[in-house]
Design a protein around this nucleic acid. Sequence first.
DNA 1: AGTATAGATGACTGTTTAGTCAAGTAAAGC
DNA 2: GCTTTACTTGACTAAACAGTCATCTATACT
Lengths: 197, 197
Amino acid sequence: MGRTSDARERLEKAIYQLMWDKSYNALTIDMICKEADVKKGSFYYYFESKTDLAVAAMEKAWQELKTKLDPIFSPAKDPLERLFDHADYSYEKTREIQRDSGQVLGCPCFNIASEVCCVESELAEKTFEILNRYRRYFTSAVKEAAEEGVIDEANPEEAARILYSVFDGMMTQARVRNDPEVLLDLKPAYRRLLKIK
Amino acid sequence: MGRTSDARERLEKAIYQLMWDKSYNALTIDMICKEADVKKGSFYYYFESKTDLAVAAMEKAWQELKTKLDPIFSPAKDPLERLFDHADYSYEKTREIQRDSGQVLGCPCFNIASEVCCVESELAEKTFEILNRYRRYFTSAVKEAAEEGVIDEANPEEAARILYSVFDGMMTQARVRNDPEVLLDLKPAYRRLLKIK
DNA sequence: AGTATAGATGACTGTTTAGTCAAGTAAAGC
DNA sequence: GCTTTACTTGACTAAACAGTCATCTATACT
């Protein structure tokens, strides 16, 4: 019983968008409240600190992303198809965001993880965790491809680590250059890295 | 004539170290002054703003790095040797820094570029410029390898772009994981990406 | 309709921050 | 040794900032 509200969700959306657009450390609580149209008193009603909100927002964003990744990396599909579909999805999504906001933003989790890993231990842990969850999709696909024999691969774990580094590296290159076309190198890179039969 | 000082250099060193350790946006002018042992009045004697100092510091750091990169990528060496020596250097340097400071820090320019590219346009331009200078070493080596026929390469520019994305991607993975061993994947990745004869 | 409760609000405090400035100090050149 | 000039200092202002709280409001449940 009592009053209802979506202020919590508005705050989570706001900090996530601002972190993605700008950076974590550039944000103040006032900015986040303004973006969410929530007063500071309410902010502290829901969250203890900026870090606290950021951690919650990252987890929510992951749950949202997961609903997109699960079909893309569906075990019903050929493992290589999963990887290439994910490359296509990343390119298309990046273009869409640039069309709407004028900016290529890259992978929010990777950006923030790199920014806070030596400063905000709580948020660092959460982003680290999410990066690992994300990478597991790659590992699973590469391992399966190796087992099915569609690639000639002596070290699938290594291959998956490298593929994921390429993905994050290119997403950030795309951000820095504000150019989605950078991501057109993703599929050629995967083809070079995997000995496809 | 007049009083002499190395306060300018101390400030540049201080912001560079702090940006690398933490991040750009996390820093205040007071923190930088304290680290450099320089009073704020002196800060504003030399620089207009934090951005101004950061730009100067990045350029100085690049000039310093260049003296390391030039021998590593010396045209006197085989092109592939340059790339592999650079991978070794990156790994060793990263380990050394972790030994001293307890932290893997990755590539400062890539970290900062990704952090400020949508916010601080002046610093964004400078870091962007440096990333391009860095990548030129890769491009030159790969192109030469292709021309000399030591690799079988239809698209050397693409290969160089991918190699450099792997490098930056892994450097940041190493930072986030605080694990230099991530960089041991660098040379295997290069070997996978280039059809070495 | 009344009440208990979840949430909203804005005014408040103390602190940190950027940026300024007049007065002081050290060294280079005469 | 004196003057010019490059640099230093600490005290200052105003603004931005995090965090608190008493009071107000809406609504779910009885």
